[in-house]
């Protein structure tokens, strides 16, 4: 059981408690982000077990390096997402190198929301989805391709048959717009 007082703590406080060795805070952070991060890792790996291994590694790294987390450099969510994404890409490359690479970007047929997930994260997901839907489809395609694939900027430009300069400008405009739409979202 995660205690009620731990559950209500903001993310940064959970990380501070983890830095001081509070295992309940790690459990609460997993309850808050484990499922979403697994879905993210799954987008790259197309394998639930691999995805969960990546997320377990990420949360374990967060536990060990909690004291190094610097709130001035970004939110806990952004920290965890960046670690998950980079570890998922590393693992995907390692799997591909072993010639066992599954396709990327396949939707997960079994991923259904867990009722145990916090309302907060469900609500946040809903808001972001809505914001994504209001983006120009071309901008959305670009963002999703850049974020959920292992392509470099040049490869993205080639894939979309766009000059690299256009990719850069469009990407910035899209992400800025998303940021603007999400500016009211609590961290």
């Amino acid at each position: 059981m995660v205690r009620a007082d731990t559950e209500r703590k903001p993310d940064a406080k959970l990380v501070a408690a983890m830095a001081n060795g509070d295992a309940h805070a790690l459990k609460a952070l997993n309850a808050r982000y484990g499922a979403s991060l697994s879905a993210l890792a799954f987008r790259f790996l197309a394998d639930q077990a691999d995805a969960e291994e990546v997320v377990a590694d990420v949360l374990w790294q967060a536990w060990r390096e909690a004291a190094l987390y610097d709130p001035a450099r970004g939110s806990v969510a952004a920290w965890l997402v960046a670690m998950s994404r980079s570890r998922a890409i590393d693992r995907f490359r390692a799997i591909r190198a072993r010639r066992l690479a599954p396709g990327i970007g396949e939707p997960n047929p079994e991923a259904t929301p867990d009722p145990a997930d916090e309302l907060d994260s469900a609500e946040r997901g809903r808001i972001v989805k809505h914001a994504l839907e209001t983006l120009d489809p071309k901008q959305r395609e670009l963002l999703e391709l850049a974020y959920f694939s292992d392509l470099s900027q040049t490869e993205i430009a080639a894939r979309l048959a766009l000059p690299l300069g256009t990719v850069k400008t469009r990407m910035r405009a899209a992400l800025l717009k998303l940021r603007q739409m999400l500016s009211g979202l609590p961290e």
Binding site: A82, D114, L182
Partner: peptide, 20 residues
């Protein structure tokens, strides 16, 4: 932060218990 929100907008996978 916007990019992280993008990531967290995916349907969550029911993984919490196994991860824990």
């Amino acid at each position: 932060e916007a990019a992280a929100a993008l990531a967290l907008s995916l349907e969550p996978a029911p993984a919490e218990q196994r991860l824990w």
